[in-house]
Nucleic acid binder design. Structure first.
Lengths: 217, 217
DNA sequence: AGCATTAATATGTCTATACATATTTAATGG
DNA sequence: CCATTAAATATGTATAGACATATTAATGCT
């Protein structure tokens, strides 16, 4: 275990035990460096992860204090559907439902299956001016989702999570039990402010949830 | 603008322009340091944010490469209800509905209002062994949500986001339009593996969504 | 050829030092 | 007494160098 890890562990202990209560200032970096017998850089490395996690707040000249835990950040990774399914030990299936081009936008409707049951309905729009190669892409075997990741990167992603009553396509393709809502993931991506693609991912509420865990020790 | 910021900007440009395409290795830290005329530490600082954002992948000895953008990380901050409401320029209201103690667990049901309309129903369980002071707390004016943040910190938080049909309490208190589902936030917190509290936050789907944005330039 | 061992190497950790900069605190002056 | 200015200071940025370590590539052996 590295020095900065040991130090971070000890600092976390002091916070959790309230030796350093919420709102209190902690010793300066130089003092901590002296206490632990390391260089200031090592202390800064230990502190940085605690700051990122929202446990500490730093301000120039004012020093470092234990933050109020009002809005801890959780990191959310929404990965490829296929990987989501296969990681759970299930079999993945894919079906293209609709595919059209209108006004320079390619619109694709397709279904992702988990163990042959509907798992995610993907309703996607792709800008052909933003991604010209999308005009000729074949989505009968590979999903737009997956195809797009092979393409150029994006510089801005906007994601919205929502609950919703199913729309017509959802009811038609997701085999929803009566009164079952859908969990929506809406996402839009840009490259240098040029719009690339927009997608509406709908899932049966009973078979989909987003989980986050923030552990600290 | 600092050196590492300029460098990060230039590196981002090379990635976005596909001068460094996805999957390709980028020059070694020493080479970059020479190219930009800075110390390696400065290069590492520029790279670190790109690695955190998922744009680059580093591996010892193998070097640094442009990552496949399969699962970019988005940071999600779920903050205090009251702040959520007030930040949007709305008025916040609070109402305690139920409050009981059983088997060493205090259970509180309360409602958070936005502009006098139901916004979030909070159904909370607090471990009195984990947080003894919760036995005497007064939740008639201040919500458990808010009260708990003044208390001891936690070391592990588990959050689940879900869509769901409303349960009995939801229907009773959230004034849901017909067929409207709820958006659930389920959260459980621990301190060093000791269970502290569990909460079920339900929201009318039409008035609640979680938004994330990952910009990069 | 195939396998185990060894060497090479790019990133990771750490130190020590210098200066920059945002903020606060103190000093100054009307 | 208040407002403005100046000093103090804790964190932020940057440098240069040393060594550690994971992983790959080369080597040698059977």
């Amino acid at each position: 275990m590295h020095k900065y890890e040991k130090i971070r562990l000890e600092l976390t202990r002091r916070i959790n035990s309230q030796a350093w209560p919420v709102g209190a200032s902690i010793p300066h970096e130089d003092e901590l460096a002296a206490e632990f017998g390391v260089a200031r850089g090592t202390i800064r490395q230990a502190l940085s992860s605690l700051v990122d996690a929202g446990y500490l707040e730093k301000k120039r000249r004012a020093g470092t204090r234990v933050a109020y835990p009002k809005d801890h950040a959780s990191t959310l990774r929404i990965s490829l559907v296929r990987e989501q399914v296969e990681q759970g030990g299930h079999t993945y299936g894919y079906r293209l439902l609709k595919d059209s081009i209108e006004d320079g936008i390619r619109r694709v409707l397709c279904l992702h299956l988990r163990d042959d049951a509907p798992y995610q309905l993907e309703d996607r729009e792709i800008s052909l001016s933003g991604i010209p190669s999308a005009a000729a892409a074949d989505f009968s075997q590979i999903s737009p989702n997956e195809w797009l990741l092979q393409q150029q990167p994006y510089s801005r992603v906007q994601t919205t999570l929502q609950a919703s009553a199913p729309n017509r396509n959802d009811r038609k393709h997701l085999e929803l039990p009566r009164d079952e809502p859908v969990f929506l993931v809406l996402r839009e991506t840009f490259l240098e402010e040029v719009w690339l693609t927009r997608v509406r991912l709908s899932h049966p509420a009973s078979s989909y949830s987003v989980q986050m865990e923030r552990a600290f020790d």
